[in-house]
Each structure stands twice: as C-alpha cells, then as structure tokens.
Amino acid sequence: MVILKGDERLDYLLAEDLRIIQSPSVFSFSLDAVLLAKFVRVPVHRGSLVDLCSGNGVIPLLLSTRTKGHITGIEIQQRLYDMAVRSFEYNALTDQLAMIHGDIREIPKEIGFSKYDVVTCNPPYFPTPSEEEINKNEHLAIARHEIMCTLEDAVRVSSQLLKQGGKAAFVHRPGRLLDILSLMRKYRLEPKRLQFVYPKEGKEANTILVEGIKDGNPDLKILPPLFVYNKNNEYTQEVSRILYGEK
C-alpha cells in the first residue's frame, strides 16, 4: 500500500522490478540517472554509499539491485525527499536505503568525513540564469540550475565523504567536461573511467559519465561510446537492456 499525494503516480523501474513515485509538477528522473546507476562500480556484498542530489531516490533504488551495501540519498527539496522515502517504504527497502533532507554542502558535517566507499551525483547541469529566464516552477529550477549547489560543491563534497580509494561517479554534459575533470583533480578524485553518450550515431555526444578514485593513480580509460537510439529511432539493444532488463 502506498499513499500518493496530489498529482503523484506510481511508475515502474522495469529492469529492476521496482516502483517509484513520480509527479509531473516536480522534476522526474531521466535516462541520465539510470545510466549513472548502471555505470558506477559498486561493492556487491557490503559497503556504504551516498547519492547526492538524489531527487525522488531513483539512483538508490536502482543501485539496491546491484549491491547489498547501505545507500543514503541526500535531497534538499522536501517534496522530493518525501516521495523518495515513500518509494523506499513501498519497495520494502528501508533496511538498505535511507534519505536525508538536507543541503549537500553541509552533509559531511552531519554524516561524517572519509567514511564512504562510493558517492554518486547527478547534479544540476546549468549555471543559474537571470530571474527573468529562470523556470517559474521552483522544483524544476532547483533541479536544473546551480541554485542550491554548484558543480564544484558536488565534487568537493564527494571527496570529503569518500574514504581513500573510494569511488565518485558523476553524470553531466560534455560542455562541462574540462570543468569536471579539473575539479576532480583539485579535490583528489583522480579520473579513471570516462564514457560519452550519444543520442544516435552521427550525432554529437550529449552526456558524459565519469568515475574517479580518491587519491588514485593517473590512468584515465575512455570506454566505448554508448548510443541511445538506432537509425529507426528505437532504443539500442544496450540501452534497452539497461531500461527493461534482459529479454
């Protein structure tokens, strides 16, 4: 039994056989979050993981099928936090998954420095525009723009949370590639794996996935490209497996 509020609905995460509460009036999860949850390397049997800018908790839900470790999501928006908590309860995952309603910039002081094995983050992608340009929907504005946290905040906090040798993984836009790699090195997160995601063959990349290791040795590997759609504008086999599971 799940209590839905207002315009909320209960959607499927098909590959994982889970359900998630979503709402059209707040920022719903995108393919980027699903790709990040699939991309990051996680300990299988144990470990402590943190998901920053967690939204409605989609990444912790997805990761729960890949690891038995404990996963904590951090979300500053009360409504999204509440949706995530109820999704975790509906899927009977409250022993493994938890949410904290808070500002990621303050979270290391609350949950501890240098304690975690993995940190994931799907941060706001865009600099804060002028008041005239910003989305009038506060939920969408905060999710899309660097109002409550910047890319540097996300990278710095990830490093503060991680143990030496811990992994941080981010999803972002290719236009910020140099920024994110520079910031990772600034905060001792050595970039180790990078993947470009393309809408289809012949198009420019529109997403990057990058993973670093705290105090790791320099050795960046560029993974094979990931194409989302084929020439028939259908999901490629690889993306279809990620979204819907093996058929």
Rank of each mutant, 00 (worst) to 15 (best):
I208N: 01
V58K: 04
K109G: 09
A168T: 07
S30I: 05
V155S: 07
I180H: 13
M99V: 02
N233S: 12
D219S: 10
Y90N: 07
E8W: 03
Y125L: 07
D11S: 08
L97P: 03
E106V: 00
S158L: 04
I20H: 07
G166K: 14
K68M: 12
V119N: 01
D215F: 10
T236N: 08
L220H: 06
D17G: 12
P108I: 14
R173C: 10
R9A: 11
L140K: 15
G102P: 05
P199E: 06
S23N: 15
V40D: 04
L36M: 14
L178S: 15
V155Q: 04
V40S: 08
V239N: 00
L52P: 06
R193V: 07
I208G: 01
Y187K: 15
V44E: 15
P129N: 07
N232H: 13
V239W: 02
D153R: 15
I242N: 05
I71W: 08
G69C: 08
V40H: 02
K136Q: 14
F27A: 08
G212I: 04
E211S: 05
L93R: 02
L10D: 10
H70N: 12
S159W: 13
P225M: 00
V155W: 07
I242R: 03
I20R: 06
H101R: 10
K231Q: 11
Q160V: 13
R156S: 09
A205L: 05
L162P: 06
E201C: 02
P60H: 08
L189M: 12
H172P: 12
V118Y: 04
S159C: 14
Y235R: 02
I104E: 00
I213H: 01
I74R: 04
N232R: 09
V171C: 14
V157C: 09
R173N: 13
D7L: 14
G47K: 12
D7I: 09
P60L: 05
Y90A: 10
Q77E: 09
C121S: 12
T236A: 07
L97C: 06
V210A: 01
E201M: 11
E146A: 14
E89W: 04
D32G: 12
P127I: 03
E110R: 14
V26A: 11
Y81D: 03
G216Y: 02
F27L: 14
I20V: 14
M148Y: 08
H101D: 05
L178R: 15
S64F: 05
P123H: 09
S64G: 09
V197K: 06
V50I: 13
G112N: 09
S28Y: 10
Y116E: 02
N91G: 04
R144E: 12
L178K: 15
H101C: 12
E16F: 10
A84Y: 06
P218D: 06
E204S: 11
V197C: 06
L13K: 06
R193D: 10
N137E: 07
G212L: 01
C53Y: 02
K203Y: 13
L62C: 11
V2F: 01
L61R: 08
L93P: 05
V210W: 01
N232C: 00
Q77N: 05
L243P: 08
V155E: 04
E16H: 13
K68A: 11
V197R: 03
V85I: 13
Q195V: 01
A141W: 10
G166Y: 06
H45A: 12
G166Q: 12
G165A: 14
